[in-house]
Computed example of a mutant assay.
Amino acid sequence: MPAVPPATVVGPLTPHLYAPDAVRPLRAKEHFLQADTFVELHVHPWPQLTFSTRGVIRLSTQDGSYIVPPSRALWVPADVPHSITLIEDAELRTVYVHSWLAPPWERCEVLEISPLMRALMLALDTTPDGRPPADPQAPHRERMIAPLLIDEIERATQIRIDVPLPADKRLRQLCEALLRNPADRATLAERATAIGASERTVARLFRDQLGMNWQQWRQQAVMAHALPLLARGMAVSQVATASGYATDSAFCAMFKAATGRSPTAFQHKKPR
């Protein structure tokens, strides 16, 4: 079954109006975007920290896809092309960092957001170039905040829940279709037909390109989708349905096999 196209496609949200420099080494921006909005693939010569104050997003690069709920932030190194899909209505926040300040990380990193990190990021002015900052002291505050925020980023707990993506265009189309709609219960044979390949060819591509079989990759993708939903307090039955499982018991069995714990162990109360 082909992927459902996003409801809205937008450009790269004007990163050039927030370029960090020696005077303003941190630049922050915010955008309120609706579910099913797709921010097109783009790149810039400085690293960024992306998070949302509400709503879940998915950021994709050439190598993988990352689910980012409000409790986490995603570090994206400089010169890494990336796109963003809004899984829910979200208040998307991005902090651009001057390269001389940035940690020497060569790949994307999912980070737990500490209360201090969140407060520092939200304290940054979000006015674009060409307009006076809402806070006249914004450049001074950014220079003061920068070393402490970078220290918090480097201290943050890193979480490995990324979903690898293949280089092969046909297989990537299949993977993206599942990531866009994890509840779709189409078989591998049906998905292979949709991309014009045989089931045997697709199975071989999974092994060659991703080092795992279809079921292993699908489980990883479902886990990345389900964990943020559980963390927000969604009922296990609803998460199971949203993840493409016909019964709660089948979902719980998969989840416990993957993590050694039941889904309820990952549930938290919704924030007030």
Rank of each mutant, 00 (worst) to 15 (best):
Y66P: 04
E88F: 06
V68D: 13
E106G: 11
C108F: 00
P104W: 02
A138L: 01
M121A: 12
L120N: 05
E91F: 09
T187L: 08
L149A: 04
H140Y: 10
S83Y: 13
S65Q: 07
R93W: 05
A138K: 07
L149H: 01
R118A: 12
W75R: 15
L174E: 04
D184Y: 06
P103H: 08
S99R: 15
E91M: 14
A183C: 01
M121I: 03
H98K: 08
P136A: 04
A134V: 11
P115H: 09
D125S: 05
P136V: 07
Y96L: 12
V110I: 14
L86G: 07
I84H: 14
V95D: 05
E152R: 12
R180W: 13
Y96E: 03
T157R: 15
L171Q: 03
L116G: 09
P70C: 10
A183S: 13
A177E: 02
W100S: 14
Q62F: 00
Q173G: 02
A123C: 04
A177M: 07
L86E: 11
I161Q: 15
T187N: 07
A73C: 09
L149Q: 06
G130I: 06
T126Y: 01
R160K: 14
D125T: 11
C175N: 05
V163K: 07
I87T: 11
P166I: 05
P164I: 08
L124Y: 06
A90P: 13
D125F: 02
R72A: 09
M144G: 02
L111A: 11
R170H: 12
L148I: 11
S71R: 14
H82S: 11
A73N: 06
E154L: 00
L111P: 13
A78Y: 02
D129V: 01
T157G: 09
E112Q: 13
P70L: 05
T85D: 11
T94R: 13
Y66A: 05
R118I: 00
E106P: 00
V76T: 15
R172I: 01
